[in-house]
Protein backbone atom coordinates (compact mmCIF):
# COMPACT_ATOMS: atom_id res chain seq x y z
CA UNK A 1 0.00 0.00 0.00
CA UNK A 2 1.12 3.51 -0.79
CA UNK A 3 0.61 6.76 1.18
CA UNK A 4 0.27 10.10 -0.60
CA UNK A 5 0.10 13.45 1.19
CA UNK A 6 -1.27 16.07 -1.22
CA UNK A 7 -0.94 19.69 -0.16
CA UNK A 8 -4.10 21.03 -1.85
CA UNK A 9 -7.69 19.93 -2.39
CA UNK A 10 -7.17 19.98 -6.17
CA UNK A 11 -4.19 17.69 -5.89
CA UNK A 12 -6.10 15.39 -3.53
CA UNK A 13 -9.09 15.12 -5.88
CA UNK A 14 -6.72 14.18 -8.70
CA UNK A 15 -5.40 11.29 -6.63
CA UNK A 16 -8.73 9.94 -5.27
CA UNK A 17 -10.86 7.19 -6.78
CA UNK A 18 -9.75 3.92 -8.43
CA UNK A 19 -8.88 2.27 -5.14
CA UNK A 20 -7.30 5.40 -3.67
CA UNK A 21 -9.01 6.14 -0.37
CA UNK A 22 -9.01 9.39 1.61
CA UNK A 23 -7.61 9.25 5.15
CA UNK A 24 -7.96 12.00 7.78
CA UNK A 25 -8.14 11.06 11.49
CA UNK A 26 -8.12 7.37 10.61
CA UNK A 27 -10.53 6.32 13.36
CA UNK A 28 -12.91 4.82 10.80
CA UNK A 29 -10.70 3.97 7.83
CA UNK A 30 -7.95 2.13 9.71
CA UNK A 31 -10.25 -0.37 11.47
CA UNK A 32 -12.21 -0.94 8.23
CA UNK A 33 -8.98 -1.65 6.33
CA UNK A 34 -7.77 -3.98 9.06
CA UNK A 35 -11.07 -5.87 9.05
CA UNK A 36 -11.01 -6.22 5.27
CA UNK A 37 -14.25 -4.23 4.89
CA UNK A 38 -12.45 -1.60 2.85
CA UNK A 39 -9.72 -2.18 0.31
CA UNK A 40 -7.22 0.48 -0.71
CA UNK A 41 -4.29 0.42 -3.11
CA UNK A 42 -3.26 3.81 -1.80
CA UNK A 43 -4.20 6.02 1.12
CA UNK A 44 -4.51 9.71 0.42
CA UNK A 45 -3.75 11.64 3.62
CA UNK A 46 -5.99 14.68 3.11
CA UNK A 47 -5.05 16.58 6.26
CA UNK A 48 -3.08 19.22 4.36
CA UNK A 49 -5.71 19.42 1.63
CA UNK A 50 -8.81 20.05 3.75
CA UNK A 51 -9.37 23.19 5.88
CA UNK A 52 -9.15 22.78 9.65
CA UNK A 53 -10.39 25.27 12.21
CA UNK A 54 -13.38 27.47 13.01
CA UNK A 55 -13.92 30.88 11.42
CA UNK A 56 -17.19 32.43 12.54
CA UNK A 57 -19.93 30.15 11.24
CA UNK A 58 -17.59 28.25 8.90
CA UNK A 59 -16.04 24.99 10.12
CA UNK A 60 -13.21 23.32 8.21
CA UNK A 61 -14.02 19.66 7.54
CA UNK A 62 -10.67 18.68 9.04
CA UNK A 63 -11.54 20.18 12.44
CA UNK A 64 -11.52 17.53 15.17
CA UNK A 65 -14.49 16.82 17.42
CA UNK A 66 -12.29 17.75 20.41
CA UNK A 67 -11.66 21.20 18.93
CA UNK A 68 -15.40 21.77 18.34
CA UNK A 69 -16.38 20.52 21.78
CA UNK A 70 -14.49 23.29 23.60
CA UNK A 71 -15.14 26.24 21.29
CA UNK A 72 -17.63 28.66 22.90
CA UNK A 73 -18.65 30.00 19.48
CA UNK A 74 -20.04 26.61 18.42
CA UNK A 75 -23.79 26.02 19.04
CA UNK A 76 -24.57 23.96 22.13
CA UNK A 77 -26.21 21.17 20.13
CA UNK A 78 -23.04 20.56 18.14
CA UNK A 79 -20.68 20.88 21.10
CA UNK A 80 -22.75 18.40 23.08
CA UNK A 81 -22.99 15.98 20.13
CA UNK A 82 -19.19 16.11 19.80
CA UNK A 83 -18.70 15.69 23.56
CA UNK A 84 -20.90 12.59 23.66
CA UNK A 85 -19.78 11.09 20.35
CA UNK A 86 -16.77 9.04 21.39
CA UNK A 87 -13.87 8.62 23.79
CA UNK A 88 -11.44 11.53 24.37
CA UNK A 89 -8.79 9.84 22.24
CA UNK A 90 -11.19 9.33 19.32
CA UNK A 91 -12.53 12.89 19.59
CA UNK A 92 -8.95 14.19 19.43
CA UNK A 93 -8.29 12.17 16.28
CA UNK A 94 -11.55 12.17 14.32
CA UNK A 95 -12.51 15.01 11.97
CA UNK A 96 -16.04 16.36 11.58
CA UNK A 97 -15.97 15.57 7.85
CA UNK A 98 -15.06 11.96 8.54
CA UNK A 99 -17.69 11.70 11.26
CA UNK A 100 -20.39 12.50 8.70
CA UNK A 101 -19.16 9.68 6.48
CA UNK A 102 -18.84 6.92 9.06
CA UNK A 103 -20.20 3.48 8.26
CA UNK A 104 -22.96 1.74 10.13
CA UNK A 105 -22.31 -0.19 13.33
CA UNK A 106 -24.65 -2.99 12.12
CA UNK A 107 -22.93 -6.13 13.35
CA UNK A 108 -23.92 -8.11 10.25
CA UNK A 109 -22.28 -5.49 8.04
CA UNK A 110 -19.22 -5.32 10.30
CA UNK A 111 -18.91 -9.13 10.17
CA UNK A 112 -19.10 -9.01 6.36
CA UNK A 113 -22.40 -10.87 5.99
CA UNK A 114 -23.54 -10.64 2.33
CA UNK A 115 -26.20 -8.01 3.05
CA UNK A 116 -27.61 -5.32 0.77
CA UNK A 117 -24.88 -2.87 1.82
CA UNK A 118 -22.25 -5.42 0.79
CA UNK A 119 -23.98 -6.04 -2.55
CA UNK A 120 -25.97 -9.05 -1.32
CA UNK A 121 -29.68 -9.74 -1.59
CA UNK A 122 -31.07 -9.43 1.93
CA UNK A 123 -30.90 -7.62 5.24
CA UNK A 124 -29.68 -10.13 7.80
CA UNK A 125 -30.58 -7.86 10.69
CA UNK A 126 -34.30 -7.92 9.91
CA UNK A 127 -34.49 -11.69 10.40
CA UNK A 128 -31.83 -11.73 13.08
CA UNK A 129 -30.65 -9.59 15.99
CA UNK A 130 -31.50 -5.94 15.38
CA UNK A 131 -32.04 -4.23 18.71
CA UNK A 132 -29.65 -1.39 17.86
CA UNK A 133 -31.21 -0.87 14.44
CA UNK A 134 -33.64 1.42 12.64
CA UNK A 135 -37.19 2.58 13.24
CA UNK A 136 -37.38 4.73 10.10
CA UNK A 137 -36.36 4.23 6.48
CA UNK A 138 -35.81 0.50 7.02
CA UNK A 139 -37.64 -0.94 3.98
CA UNK A 140 -34.42 -2.36 2.53
CA UNK A 141 -31.62 -2.05 5.07
CA UNK A 142 -32.38 -1.87 8.80
CA UNK A 143 -29.05 -0.39 9.89
CA UNK A 144 -28.89 2.71 12.07
CA UNK A 145 -26.61 5.66 11.30
CA UNK A 146 -24.43 6.33 14.35
CA UNK A 147 -23.46 10.00 13.85
CA UNK A 148 -24.50 12.26 16.73
CA UNK A 149 -22.76 15.10 14.92
CA UNK A 150 -24.82 14.66 11.75
CA UNK A 151 -28.05 14.85 13.77
CA UNK A 152 -26.87 18.11 15.33
CA UNK A 153 -25.86 19.55 11.98
CA UNK A 154 -29.21 18.57 10.43
CA UNK A 155 -31.05 20.41 13.21
CA UNK A 156 -28.86 23.46 12.59
CA UNK A 157 -29.63 23.52 8.85
CA UNK A 158 -25.99 23.04 7.84
CA UNK A 159 -24.74 23.60 4.30
CA UNK A 160 -21.71 21.69 2.99
CA UNK A 161 -19.12 22.84 0.51
CA UNK A 162 -17.32 20.04 -1.28
CA UNK A 163 -14.70 20.07 -4.02
CA UNK A 164 -17.59 19.76 -6.51
CA UNK A 165 -20.68 21.52 -5.10
CA UNK A 166 -22.58 23.17 -2.29
CA UNK A 167 -25.46 21.24 -0.76
CA UNK A 168 -27.66 21.02 2.33
CA UNK A 169 -26.38 18.28 4.65
CA UNK A 170 -29.55 16.22 4.12
CA UNK A 171 -28.57 15.85 0.45
CA UNK A 172 -25.30 14.21 1.41
CA UNK A 173 -27.30 11.13 2.38
CA UNK A 174 -29.50 8.66 0.52
CA UNK A 175 -31.32 5.56 1.69
CA UNK A 176 -29.77 2.42 0.23
CA UNK A 177 -31.85 0.55 -2.35
CA UNK A 178 -31.74 -3.07 -3.48
CA UNK A 179 -29.67 -2.10 -6.54
CA UNK A 180 -27.52 0.65 -5.01
CA UNK A 181 -26.07 0.22 -1.52
CA UNK A 182 -24.59 3.72 -1.25
CA UNK A 183 -25.69 5.72 1.78
CA UNK A 184 -24.07 8.97 0.68
CA UNK A 185 -24.05 10.94 -2.54
CA UNK A 186 -20.37 11.81 -2.22
CA UNK A 187 -18.32 10.76 -5.27
CA UNK A 188 -15.13 8.72 -4.78
CA UNK A 189 -13.08 11.71 -5.84
CA UNK A 190 -15.07 14.34 -3.94
CA UNK A 191 -14.04 15.80 -0.58
CA UNK A 192 -16.07 17.70 1.98
CA UNK A 193 -14.16 20.94 2.54
CA UNK A 194 -16.23 23.19 4.80
CA UNK A 195 -19.47 23.34 6.75
CA UNK A 196 -21.56 26.47 7.08
CA UNK A 197 -23.39 26.28 10.40
CA UNK A 198 -26.07 28.87 11.20
CA UNK A 199 -26.13 30.13 14.79
CA UNK A 200 -29.46 29.22 16.41
CA UNK A 201 -31.34 31.07 19.13
CA UNK A 202 -31.46 27.88 21.19
CA UNK A 203 -30.34 24.30 20.71
CA UNK A 204 -29.92 21.02 22.56
CA UNK A 205 -28.66 17.46 22.02
CA UNK A 206 -30.10 14.58 24.03
CA UNK A 207 -28.69 11.09 23.70
CA UNK A 208 -29.86 7.74 25.01
CA UNK A 209 -26.98 5.28 25.37
CA UNK A 210 -26.70 1.80 26.81
CA UNK A 211 -24.12 3.10 29.30
CA UNK A 212 -23.38 6.53 30.75
CA UNK A 213 -20.06 7.24 29.04
CA UNK A 214 -19.43 7.22 25.36
CA UNK A 215 -21.36 4.78 23.32
CA UNK A 216 -23.14 4.84 19.99
CA UNK A 217 -26.64 6.30 20.24
CA UNK A 218 -29.70 4.16 20.89
CA UNK A 219 -31.53 7.36 19.95
CA UNK A 220 -29.96 10.81 19.63
CA UNK A 221 -32.22 13.86 19.32
CA UNK A 222 -30.92 17.24 18.21
CA UNK A 223 -33.15 20.29 18.21
CA UNK A 224 -32.35 23.85 17.16
CA UNK A 225 -34.51 26.98 16.92
CA UNK A 226 -33.29 29.23 14.15
CA UNK A 227 -35.23 32.36 13.11
CA UNK A 228 -38.17 31.09 15.16
CA UNK A 229 -38.30 27.74 13.36
CA UNK A 230 -37.42 24.51 15.19
CA UNK A 231 -35.67 21.70 13.33
CA UNK A 232 -35.10 18.17 14.63
CA UNK A 233 -32.32 15.76 13.63
CA UNK A 234 -32.11 12.19 14.89
CA UNK A 235 -29.23 9.73 15.18
CA UNK A 236 -29.44 5.96 15.57
CA UNK A 237 -32.93 5.63 14.11
CA UNK A 238 -32.47 5.10 10.35
CA UNK A 239 -29.79 4.00 7.86
CA UNK A 240 -29.00 7.70 7.42
CA UNK A 241 -29.24 10.70 9.77
CA UNK A 242 -32.95 11.44 10.01
CA UNK A 243 -34.92 14.69 9.93
CA UNK A 244 -38.30 15.07 11.64
CA UNK A 245 -40.47 17.94 10.56
CA UNK A 246 -42.70 17.59 13.60
CA UNK A 247 -43.34 15.32 16.55
CA UNK A 248 -46.19 13.77 14.51
CA UNK A 249 -43.60 12.23 12.19
CA UNK A 250 -42.95 9.73 14.96
CA UNK A 251 -46.39 8.23 14.19
CA UNK A 252 -44.99 7.13 10.84
CA UNK A 253 -42.14 5.10 12.33
CA UNK A 254 -41.76 1.49 11.15
CA UNK A 255 -40.08 -0.21 14.11
CA UNK A 256 -38.97 -3.82 13.96
CA UNK A 257 -39.78 -6.20 16.83
CA UNK A 258 -36.35 -5.61 18.34
CA UNK A 259 -36.33 -1.84 17.86
CA UNK A 260 -39.85 -1.04 19.07
CA UNK A 261 -38.38 0.06 22.41
CA UNK A 262 -36.65 2.93 20.62
CA UNK A 263 -39.91 4.65 19.70
CA UNK A 264 -40.98 5.67 23.23
CA UNK A 265 -37.39 6.79 23.89
CA UNK A 266 -37.50 8.93 20.75
CA UNK A 267 -40.87 10.37 21.78
CA UNK A 268 -39.60 11.28 25.23
CA UNK A 269 -36.37 12.83 23.97
CA UNK A 270 -38.14 14.79 21.21
CA UNK A 271 -40.64 16.17 23.74
CA UNK A 272 -37.83 17.16 26.12
CA UNK A 273 -35.78 18.69 23.32
CA UNK A 274 -38.71 20.73 22.04
CA UNK A 275 -39.35 22.05 25.56
CA UNK A 276 -35.68 22.94 25.94
CA UNK A 277 -35.45 24.99 22.75
CA UNK A 278 -38.87 26.60 23.23
CA UNK A 279 -37.58 28.54 26.20
CA UNK A 280 -33.79 28.39 25.94
Amino acid sequence: MELRQPSSAEEAVGLLGNGHVALAGGTEIVPLLRDGLLRADALIDIRRAVPRGIHGTTIGAGTTLAELEVDPGIPVVLREACRLAASPQLRAMGSIGGNLLQATRCWYWRLDFPCYLHGGDRCHAKDGRHDEHAIFGNDVCASAHPSDVAAALLALGTMLRTTARELPLAELYRLPTTDDPQTTTLADDELILELEVPIPEASVYLKAMDRQRWSFPIVGVAAARTAGEVRLGLAGVAPVPWTLTSVDDLDRATPLPGTAYKLPIARALVARALRAVATG
Partner: peptide
Amino acid sequence: GVPRLSCITLVHT
Protein backbone atom coordinates in the same frame (compact mmCIF):
# COMPACT_ATOMS: atom_id res chain seq x y z
CA GLY B 1 0.47 16.13 24.71
CA VAL B 2 -2.86 14.92 23.29
CA PRO B 3 -3.94 11.31 23.97
CA ARG B 4 -4.33 9.18 20.85
CA LEU B 5 -4.91 5.53 20.13
CA SER B 6 -1.66 4.13 18.75
CA CYS B 7 -3.29 0.90 17.53
CA ILE B 8 -5.34 2.76 14.89
CA THR B 9 -2.77 5.48 14.17
CA LEU B 10 -0.75 4.72 11.06
CA VAL B 11 2.85 5.48 11.90
CA HIS B 12 3.51 7.28 8.62
CA THR B 13 0.87 9.88 9.48
